[in-house]
Design a protein around this nucleic acid. Structure first.
Lengths: 194, 194
DNA sequence: AGCTGCATGTAACCTGTTACATGATTAT
DNA sequence: ATAATCATGTAACAGGTTACATGCAGCT
């Protein structure tokens, strides 16, 4: 089984979901398109890691609601204690940054400023989600607090990191300015410069 | 052309490299294995984006040193001004965290502590690289300062983010402790709690 | 004698994205 | 009208990893 499979297991371990719902739900854990999720759900169901029942709805199409089985839980438990592989990060922004930031000052600025606004946007929309989670929390009992708290810590992690990247962007923006004004006389390569 | 191709172009735009060297060099920009890089270099050379000359060495095997062509530079310049796609992040740690952090306290702690030590390790080794870059810088003229400074800002970015993640890990570690002692009485879902 | 680093390449496989396909309901 | 949301699925393709394959130099 691949990592997406385990992501699905850990999501369903909290609450049963349809494939459609999982697309949203997995966004924080391990983003995937529906075209990848649906076939995997079928495979996992055939392996006995999941079960589903078809739930008919009024005013909208019926759905397959998947739940984790005991076998599924065991599989997840075994995997969870193995040490995780290195995170995979691929970011076009870094390449573009690397390419333009000295040779093309205007585009460098634009690139960084755009990045800042995208990050700020994400931070605010994530904060909204957190507020939403709070409200839902208040209407529920204590038992459910723990279930969604995992998402909360992941959201706050992302926000922390995004905010830190915004600081970095502003630092870079300052460097670009300095570069122009001070004729760039051998910068001291020190972290403390920040 | 794919993003790896552009990453190669931007790397070679700084200085000519062999495929073998590119594996290391691209690690910060867009990590790739040699099995992906070698065939791409051949394709790009055939398209006229790159040229190479075979350089024989003493005491080690000869290598193909690739350089960017004017066509290659044009291709890169066009791509660089387009707004970058969203970064791709996939991290098993997050799934494992999500799964264990409430149900299995011991493993949750271990998971986070391991993460901290890996991050700390990376931060220190990156700082060493920066020191190395400084020393190399001092022996070179002003012209080359700019060439490696791009790497410097990317390294410092990563270090900043990794350090921030370490803080987050410590915050989570505290939450786990609290959970045990305070019977977890409905935590207030506020960011300010940090 | 065996491991690490330098150096290049191919083949098989897995993972993930884009596009094709369908269809009802609700909001603008 | 037409776009968006809910809902599921497949097929073709692109991107990336693992494994196979070779070979020399230098170190332990």
């Amino acid at each position: 089984m691949n990592t997406l499979g385990y992501a699905i297991l850990s999501a369903l371990d909290r609450k049963p979901c349809s494939g459609y719902q999982l697309v949203d739900y997995l966004e924080v854990l391990w983003p995937a398109k529906h075209s990848q999720i649906y076939p995997l759900l079928t495979k996992m169901e055939q392996k006995g890691l999941l079960v589903y029942k078809y739930v008919e709805q009024i005013g909208r199409p019926g759905k397959k609601v998947f739940s984790i089985t005991d076998t599924g839980k065991e599989t997840l438990d075994k995997w969870v204690v193995e040490s995780p592989t290195d995170p995979i990060i691929r970011d076009e922004f870094l390449i573009k940054m690397y390419s333009v930031w000295l040779t093309d000052e205007d585009n460098a600025k634009k690139l960084v400023q755009d990045r800042i606004s995208i990050l700020e946007q994400k931070v605010t929309s994530r904060e909204k989600k957190i507020v939403k989670m709070e409200k839902e929390q208040e209407s529920k009992g204590l038992d459910n607090v723990s279930k969604d708290f995992g998402r909360y810590i992941l959201y706050s992690r992302r926000n922390l990191l995004d905010k830190e990247e915004i600081s970095w962007c502003n630092w870079v923006l300052n460097l670009v300015k300095k570069k122009t004004s001070e004729t760039f006389d051998r910068p001291s390569f020190h972290l403390s410069e920040k």
